[in-house]
């Protein structure tokens, strides 16, 4: 074989190898492009399915709340009112030593009836359309105040606008969940809620002066049982909003809910 011929072979083989390598990479990139597309579609389908499931779950939950609310109002409430009426009728016919006890019982019964009405109201989704979001939240705070264990402040900033019924309901339930968490775990004495209607979004800040917690530790736990915080995150993602919870042990908790305006989505 001649010298030049051999060199030509070397160069040609080298060029062929490099081209083969380029082809291999092209196949890899092409395959990955298709796979990425497939993964994207799969993730989209999964996310749609999750959203639908979550929405269905929330609808069922709201229906259940509504039924419970009606039951409390129509049956338990009515029954208790009847008991109160009967007690009132007994008023003149009882000995004086029992009268005091009866008065106490009537007061207690009156309070129970009022509490049940409040609970029935807050469970009923129609309550939100009657009072509006900030009215509903304000009433929740008033309920807290009534217990005598909390001092609450409620502030609204900006020009109030209405979100869709579903979004407001989800927001309201999340605020309720946050307030419930404060009652159950925070050992707080003050609760502050600030609603800020900005041009591009509505932000609701719920803060307390309670014992706080380690957010990282809670996230791990919640991941496992799929409740509480994770539930709130899922609900927020369903209405395309965000929730941030900041807390330090001993320094209270601040939760910030942000919901972009529907027109900006």
């Amino acid at each position: 074989m001649e010298k030049n011929e051999l060199l030509t072979y070397i160069i040609a083989t080298t060029a062929i190898l490099v081209l083969l390598g380029a082809f291999l990479l092209f196949v890899l990139l092409w395959y990955r492009r298709n796979k990425n597309q497939y993964i994207k579609e799969k993730q989209h389908m999964q996310s749609t399915l999750n959203q639908t499931l979550l929405q269905t779950r929330l609808e069922i939950q709201e229906e259940t709340f509504k039924t419970i609310s009606q039951e409390i109002h129509d049956n338990i409430g009515q029954a208790l009112s009847f008991v109160k009426l009967s007690l009132n009728m007994m008023d003149g016919r009882i000995p004086p030593d029992i009268k005091e006890k009866l008065t106490e019982s009537k007061e207690l019964l009156g309070k129970t009836i009022q509490d049940l009405r409040d609970i029935a109201r807050s469970l009923n989704p129609d309550f939100l359309s009657d009072s509006g979001l900030y009215g509903a939240i304000e009433q929740q705070l008033q309920l807290l105040e009534k217990t005598g264990e909390y001092k609450t402040t409620f502030n609204v900033m900006g020009i109030v606008y209405k979100n869709s019924q579903q979004r407001e309901l989800v927001l309201f339930r999340i605020v309720q969940e946050l307030l419930n968490n404060i009652i159950k775990h925070a050992e707080a004495t003050t609760v502050n809620v600030l609603m800020n209607y900005r041009v591009d979004k509505l932000s609701i800040t719920v803060s307390d002066n309670g014992k706080g917690f380690d957010t990282s530790a809670v996230q791990v736990t919640e991941k496992n049982n799929g409740l509480g915080m994770r539930n709130m995150l899922n609900r927020m993602s369903m209405i395309k909003g965000y929730i941030t919870i900041e807390s330090t042990p001993g320094e209270g908790t601040t939760s910030i809910i942000e919901l972009p305006k529907e027109t900006d989505l």
């Binding site: 010298k3 051999l6 060199l7 070397i10 080298t14 190898l17 490099v18 390598g21 990479l25």
Partner: peptide, 23 residues
């Protein structure tokens, strides 16, 4: 990958090429 793919032939035959004064 490209460097090694392209150089493998020449470097593999390096001693042969130099001893036969091909390049």
């Amino acid at each position: 990958f490209f460097f090694n793919l392209g150089s493998i032939i020449y470097l593999g035959l390096f001693n042969y090429i130099t001893s036969h004064k091909l390049d």
